[in-house]
Write a protein that binds this DNA or RNA. Structure first.
Lengths: 346, 346
DNA sequence: TATTTTAGTGTGTACGAGCACAATTTATCA
DNA sequence: TGATAAATTGTGCTCGTACACACTAAAATA
């Protein structure tokens, strides 16, 4: 353990005042060449690490961070996000940070824009948002940028130079993981990618997953598997899926690109004469139920709690510790089966 | 965002001096009933959160934490641990914490005891250790206890009231995960548990994994699978395993309870006429190689980096923030296959 | 009553960084 | 040379907590 040097130490070693050392360190004000050399000589010799604690103590500005999030009441997938935010809030409660969450309806672009207006009235220093709607999110983020508000995203990746940070998963790779799992479970046959509910064109995440999934099988070659894509929407979901199942007797596996695998499991679990392999996303209650009933084989965990937690802590540490915000944080693609599900649900 | 109260605020509200507030908060010195009531009245009304940062600024004691770890040079499994320690060290470099790592040979109890003596000479406040050797570790920990040194463990769980904290995985459940994976991969046949190298009697971790593994299959019932246990040791490892394979033509799957699955894969990958499913532990280079060659189907990630990181940060936060040390932190049992391996190796 | 003891309370300072401002030195001009 | 401006450097305060120390007033003792 090396000695921890303070500005006072440096000042004494360089035989100048701590004010001068401060000016050299922060390139603030005028310093003579002689003094500059003396201080730099000391700085070269030792490893000075400013005490972030002491620095922050003086800082009286309260940083405002707003979170713009789909309402968990409409889709339980988002529930863990608020928990992640709360955890981060607690961890940094000694610091001058104010975090506020704003919920929008994940089906309504207007609700998204509306809540954004409400949020803007609190004049935040940064916004952490889920850019669910491509076009609208881009506009909102451009606006933040022009207002000097930092914007970070999570869960959905959006290409924009105005975005400081993204936390999420590599969805292409996630599709490959799903493909790998079905490849391990199955010998041959028809494999179907099912997209449920959301508009395919607007949902880049589903497209990326499909690309990765197909990429795995095309690399695999061998012609053992046939891949089909199927887009299903409520309210005719049940009928259409049942029809599809009846029409394809060689169906061996299904990959559901959203958290709605339980809707598929509800139907496939009733088929008695054969077992259809099923891989889906997210540890929501309905999915876990069917996982435990063996109607779903694997779930891929997107870890929304950790995504939100990392998104918010990067911002907090940027404000209070001057830490660099990582432009991209990719989380591991967790594979979940009956036996290890509990560990991920804490 | 509620107002953040300081001791000065409380003093003004209660119309006493900050010294008196301090005495009430820390139950230090004598305070009259009148003053006590006044301060408590204010404390009841507001939510006072002491500023941990300012508190720490004053504290000049340097806390010494020693880490007692198997040498990664002898077994690469331990390499990530040092990285986890270093990460924690960096994160808390502004605080008065000195962390020092001591390596012992994972095959030698005497090296363990020897390094422990060296470590003790630095008179640490806490020790984080891997209690690889049951009997010796217990003795060492008892000794720490009598010296007033806090002891935390990770990777291997040891029952002792002298241990403040354990970070690791539920190994029984980890065995069940392995069983589940083989169940999903296979229809029926012989499944073998292979213990490699270590003395079975001393290695509680292998026993726990086996118990969980067998527990899953006995709960499953149905009589589709037959389970056998096999203990193999160098140098006759290759011959014995080859013999075993020849003798059991119905062998369908193998579960290796240590990080040595690659040694099994080396042999099973040469069998051309059939594929034997293989599940093992740990993302070491040799294992990853065989995973990518499809000779290993799944690896279970024990996340030694995070184990060490959590173990050390709990201690640090106890010392500098007075946080409670969680007596047990169980990490998720990560399932790794070719496609998601990279994510876990950062 | 004078002096000492003790309970209770308030004041002041350190910690390290940052920054305003005062103090000093050096340069410029009349 | 003296006065003034400019450049450079040093001092001192703040942040919130913890703790040493000084102080007051009442109680106990001589």
């Amino acid at each position: 353990m090396e000695k921890i040097y303070t500005i006072k130490d440096i000042a004494e070693l360089a035989k100048v005042s701590k004010g001068t050392v401060d000016r050299v360190l922060h390139k603030r004000g005028k310093v003579s060449q002689v003094a500059l050399d003396k201080v730099n000589a000391v700085l070269d010799r030792i490893d000075y690490q400013p005490n972030l604690i002491a620095r922050n103590l003086k800082n009286s500005k309260i940083y405002r961070i707003c979170v713009l999030l789909p309402n968990p009441k409409n889709d339980p997938y988002w529930q863990p996000c608020t928990e992640g935010i709360t955890a981060a809030k607690n961890e940094f409660k000694s610091f001058n940070i104010a975090v506020e969450i704003f919920f929008f309806n994940h089906n309504s672009t207007s609700s998204f824009l509306e809540m954004n207006e409400v949020l803007l009235k609190t004049s935040p220093d940064a916004v952490l948002l889920v850019p669910l709607f491509y076009k609208e999110a881009l506009g909102v983020i451009e606006n933040y940028n022009s207002l000097g508000i930092i914007s970070s995203t999570f869960n959905n990746q959006l290409q924009s130079s105005a975005i400081k940070s993204f936390v999420g998963q590599d969805l292409f790779q996630s599709g490959r993981v799903a493909a790998r799992l079905l490849d391990l479970l199955l010998q041959k046959g028809l494999v179907v990618i099912i997209h449920i509910d959301e508009k395919y064109k607007n949902a880049v995440h589903m497209q990326e997953k499909e690309k990765g999934f197909r990429n795995y099988f095309s690399e695999l070659g061998g012609g053992k598997f046939e891949i089909l894509t199927c887009k299903l929407k409520h309210p005719q979901f049940n009928i259409k899926l049942t029809d599809f199942l009846n029409m394809h007797s060689n169906l061996a596996g299904i990959f559901v690109t959203t958290s709605k695998a339980y809707q598929v499991a509800e139907i496939t679990s009733k088929i008695k004469d054969k077992k259809i392999a099923l891989v889906g996303y997210d540890l929501i209650e309905n999915n876990i139920d069917y996982l435990n009933k063996n109607a779903i084989d694997f779930l891929i965990h997107q870890n929304p709690k950790r995504q939100a937690y990392l998104g918010i802590t990067s911002l907090i540490e940027y404000f209070i510790f001057d830490k660099e915000i990582p432009s991209e944080q990719l989380l591991p693609i967790d594979i979940v089966t009956t036996e290890n599900a509990k560990n991920y649900m804490i």
